[in-house]
């Protein structure tokens, strides 16, 4: 009896030590490997018109990370869009379902490129205030970050 319980204890200890490392080898939590910086949103004109938010994301991990969407406390609907301008100079905006970040890769959301569209605003985005959003990842994890609201005329996170 005593012998058995010792054996069980050894096994239990073994499992307790090994389990987390086995789990982490299989399941990397994507949101924990992503760094968010330079986030900002453009102040809105009231609540009727959509506005946009921008940020820089870095994948600090060693595996591909996929961003599948975004949720925002201030907007009824938020989604990732990409602006492109054709050879004829025509500007187009298209929703983007997934954004892939390669290991060590950086992606800048900026005017004229990737941006977060904020629609159906619950309240106006006022310059000088701040709001928060979460990026959603393929594995179901989320990354919450704060977003300062800059003027309608702002062009980057450094702009006044």
């Amino acid at each position: 009896m005593r012998y058995l319980s010792l054996n069980a204890r050894v096994i239990a200890t073994f499992i307790a030590i090994m389990l987390p490392s086995v789990l982490s080898a299989q399941e990397v939590i994507q949101s924990e490997l992503v760094q968010v910086s330079s986030s900002w949103a453009r102040a809105s004109v009231g609540t009727m018109r959509p506005t946009a938010a921008y940020l820089t994301v870095v994948n600090t991990g060693e595996q591909m990370i996929t961003i599948t969407g975004v949720v925002s406390e201030i907007a009824g609907r938020s989604s990732i869009h990409e602006t492109s301008v054709s050879a004829e100079g025509v500007g187009t905006m298209k929703p983007v379902k997934e954004v892939h970040l390669s290991p060590g890769g950086t992606l800048e959301f900026k005017p004229g490129s990737y941006h977060i569209m904020l629609m159906e605003l619950n309240e106006p985005l006022l310059e000088g205030a701040s709001t928060s959003m979460s990026l959603m990842f393929e594995d179901g994890s989320q990354k919450l970050f704060s977003v300062p609201i800059l003027s309608i005329g702002a062009r980057s996170a450094d702009a006044k």
Binding site: P50, H81, T83, M93, I152, G153, R155
Partner: peptide, 16 residues
């Protein structure tokens, strides 16, 4: 157009 969230405010800011 004023419902344009990205290109138009950016252009207006450039022009300003």
């Amino acid at each position: 157009f004023t419902f344009c969230p990205d290109i138009c405010p950016t252009t207006l800011n450039d022009i300003s």
